[in-house]
Each structure stands twice: as structure tokens, then as C-alpha cells.
Design a protein around this nucleic acid. Structure first.
Lengths: 163, 163
DNA sequence: GTAACTGATTGCGGTTTGCAACCGGCTCGG
DNA sequence: CCGAGCCGGTTGCAAACCGCAATCAGTTAC
């Protein structure tokens, strides 16, 4: 059992998430609902390589941020799911997106979701986390207003059409 | 002018902060008020190497997250300061710390600050950011209650004495 | 004058990264 | 039942990056 560099919460978080790809993968699973290896590989904006994706999925799995399960519809397919710890990264994602939107040269259509998440605030994040728990952990949620997931997607697609 | 992998806010944030050291350095400047190379080098929990520290300080400087200025008291000393963009990382730090504290094997005394920041919520973060603006940007703040910086430090030291 | 301290740089070996090609098992259409 | 294409990966390789120890020249305190 190798231990990290220090017991500081921020340092430990970085030892799990502190690379260029882990959070991108979680982002795609979270906001793009990509659940299969091939989806994560080809539908990514950034073009991750298959060996890196494979490595990160294993690493995230053994650290408890991702779980894998066979897909009943195809004996070879694997479904990757978020876990409760990674679902609780939603506020971190929201803040990180808001910060990037404010200080870095973001693309308009990709910034829409970050803006919506930021304006929605903690209540919206909680609702979104409940939707993720339903999608990934099979925990039914109280039927609420229109899905945050759908709203984020709709806002993005509306922005695409503005060109 | 090389551009990144995509214009997504989260991806762009990761291209700036997505390594194991950048946020650790910003954390030490932010919560430990380390402003000199030597302080950052030796007083760090994690033991960063000098070449890495040098590289990251340059990188963070050219990306606008850190500024450098000569120290009038010593012709060779350099004072590193946070900038407005990096001060605005306080909420990200708070959430990241809270997440790490909840899901990773943190050390008790190092977790105290994360807990205090989490319980304080956005109002406390704003107050802390104003203190950072005073310390790093020379922007005077309205005289308020006891400094958040001092409270975080006191809580940490009180926890150390409990051994 | 000299010893300690300043922000770095250099050399080196090991690890990680990104890319392209490839793999055996599986599914589906004909 | 056969071939094409899909499935989650693995392999080989070159380049970049990483961490460590030693070292540097200029500055300061004594």
C-alpha cells in the first residue's frame, strides 16, 4: 500500500485527479453520458488515445471513481458508470468550468453549459447529481422539473445552431 | 500561438492546472502565504524539487496566475504573488479540499482547514479572497472581523497541539 | 573574507505520453 | 456459415516530462 506525498486534502485530490485526462473522461461521462470505451474514445473533443483511455479507466476504477459492468446487450461491451464519489465532483466541475469560462479563451458553444451550471448554483447541482445517481447508480429520484441533463444538452445544441 | 485541445472550459482549465504541482504551489501561496522560492521549496509538505518549482513558477507566471516582483530588502530575492485569476480559484480549492476530505485518507490536522473553509461557505470564501487581494494585490479591504487567514492558521495549530 | 543564502540550472535515469498499428473475441447481414 | 466490422483493449516506439542530486553565480550578514 503505497501512500502519497502528504495527507493534505488538496494534495490527495490532486494525486487522484491531477492529470490532463482523468477529469476530461469524468466530464464526458457526466455531461455527455458516454458509457462505453468506444464512445469515450471517438466522441471526445480532445481526441484521447486508446492506451491512455484504457489506463485512466483502470486507474479511476481501482480508486473508486468509476465502476465497470458487463453490458447485457453485447457480451463484449462494458458499461462504465460514475460512483457516488465522482458524482460528488459536480460542484468542483461547475466551479472549474466557471473559472475557465471567465479567464481562458473558451469556445462560445462549449461555454454555454458552464454558464448554465454556474447560474443554476448549488440547487441545480444537487438536482443534477440526483439525475446522475439515477443514470449511474439506479437510484430513482423524485420526479421533478425538466431534467438538468436535457437542459444542458438543449442549450448546447441551440448554441450550435446560431452559427 | 499554440492552441489547446479544445475550447471547453473544463479542458482549458486542466491545460493550465492539470498537473500534480501547480495547484499545490498555489495552495501554499494562498493558505501558507509562501512568497519566496526558498519558502515554497522547503516548507512544503510534499517536497517539491527545485527545477520543478522553477518551471511551474515560470509557467504560472506566463499564464497570468502568478506575478513576480523584486524584493526591495534583498537584491536577489523575488516575491511571488497571486493574481486576480488565481485568487478566484479559492472556491475551486474549497470544493476540492472538501471532496478530498470526504473521500480520501486525509491527515486530521491537515483536514481542519478544509473543514473550516467548507463550513464557512461562499461568504467566508469572499472574505478570504478580499484578504488575499490585500496581501497580494495591495488592494485595501474594508476592516472586517478577524482575518480568515489567521483563523485557518489558528485552527491548524490548535489541532497540532492535540497530539 | 568567508560562510550562508538567493533563485535558479544542469546532468541523468526513469516514467509518462501520444501515436499508429495490431489483437482475439464477438455480432450481424447475407 | 462466412466475411466485415465492432468490441475493449495491448504493443512498440520515439519524444516529452519527471524527480533527484549536484552545482551555479550573485548577495548578504558577520
Amino acid at each position: 500500500m503505497e501512500q502519497g506525498r502528504s495527507g493534505c486534502p488538496i494534495n490527495l485530490s490532486l494525486e487522484v485527479l491531477g492529470d490532463k485526462w482523468s477529469l476530461v473522461i469524468i466530464r464526458d461521462m457526466m455531461f455527455g453520458n458516454r458509457r462505453h470505451f468506444r464512445e469515450l474514445l471517438h466522441n471526445s473533443e480532445e481526441g484521447i488515445a486508446s492506451n491512455i483511455l484504457s489506463d485512466r479507466l483502470h486507474r479511476l476504477t481501482e480508486r473508486g471513481l468509476v465502476s465497470r459492468a458487463p453490458d447485457p446487450s453485447h457480451k463484449q461491451k462494458v458499461i462504465y458508470s460514475l460512483t457516488e464519489p465522482s458524482i460528488q465532483l459536480v460542484p468542483v466541475m461547475a466551479h472549474l468550468g466557471a473559472w475557465g469560462r471567465r479567464h481562458l479563451p473558451v469556445t462560445r458553444e462549449l461555454a454555454v453549459r458552464a454558464e448554465l451550471l454556474e447560474r443554476g448554483g448549488p440547487e441545480l447541482w444537487e438536482q443534477f447529481m440526483d439525475e446522475l445517481r439515477e443514470q449511474h447508480l439506479d437510484i430513482p429520484r423524485a420526479a421533478g422539473s425538466e431534467s438538468v441533463f436535457a437542459r444542458l444538452r438543449a442549450a448546447y445544441e441551440a448554441e450550435l445552431l446560431r452559427d
